[in-house]
Amino acid sequence: MNSIERIKAALNFKQPDRVPVIAQVFGHAAILAGVALGDYVRNGELLARCQLQALQFYGYDAVFALMDANVETEAAGSILTYRTDQYPIVKSAVLANGTDLNTLLPPNPWQAGRMPELLKAVRILRQEAGDSVLVVGCVLGPMTLATQLLGIEAALYLAIDEPEQFAHLLGFATKIAMRFGVAQIEAGAHLPMVFEPSASPEVIPAPFYREFVLPYLNQVFTTFKQAGSAANWLHTAGPATPILHLYPQARVDLANIDFCVDPLDAMQALPQTCLNGNIKPLAYVEATPEEIAAESSRLLKLFANRGGFILSSGCEIPPESKPENIAAMVTAACQEK
């Protein structure tokens, strides 16, 4: 089996030749290649080259065309600060200074900000590796993008004080996500992962999630499926257990679970949904390869009977992680029968 077949088998609860392993290597690919993170997130070709190099080095099952959490908000007009060795940050959010939402247009993915660079990365990755390895794009989920357009506190207060206005903002964010994701599929991504950290129960309670987030996520995922996405992958960091059972309502096929989610709870909440996770991100920086290997086999055993599992980290593998720790996870998946 190649990586794509292996992942598809896991998604469908069929027996893969081995459990797929997806290391959430984003900025770490730059560090590994000796490239500045600040350059990596601005240059699609460089990003793709670093991803391919990391793929060759580790031999896992997926590559990512993913820059950081600010691509969409920048394309819509927010100003970022770039640094050499760190991810960029939002200096001023486009809607934070009183700009009227009604005057904003959803950015054109082929023109605005770094979106075209990301699409370029997708195209190269698909060309170079995409026949056998999963090429994953990324869009922010509606809730997260709303918080990135307005600022997280202002967005949460808006949701409570003026729910209709907030729904309007979510609608706008949804449009951006759909356009950008469809463009990624057109450029060759097998699927755009939906990155939705601000919808974590760490931030909003489950009833809020049901009312404000689910319907919009459903729209996004329905659109992606129609556009040919291989699977609907939802990524929500933090202690997501209280909302997992709602994922099928948003048509989620693959659910990321963070290290603070008990895999047994996740299996119970999502009996028919493939799960990926959930090694602690900090462990790749601080633990030893032996510890990562032990944690990997614990997870592989836990899911052995059920299937529907992809071995992975709970969230992004920190850029400064030790390569031998990432390698230990990949080896664990390859050696397990």
Partner: peptide, 11 residues
């Protein structure tokens, strides 16, 4: 731990 509750009370 209801974050929104704390935020509203804090505000």
């Amino acid at each position: 731990f209801n974050l929104l509750e704390i935020m509203l009370c804090g505000r």
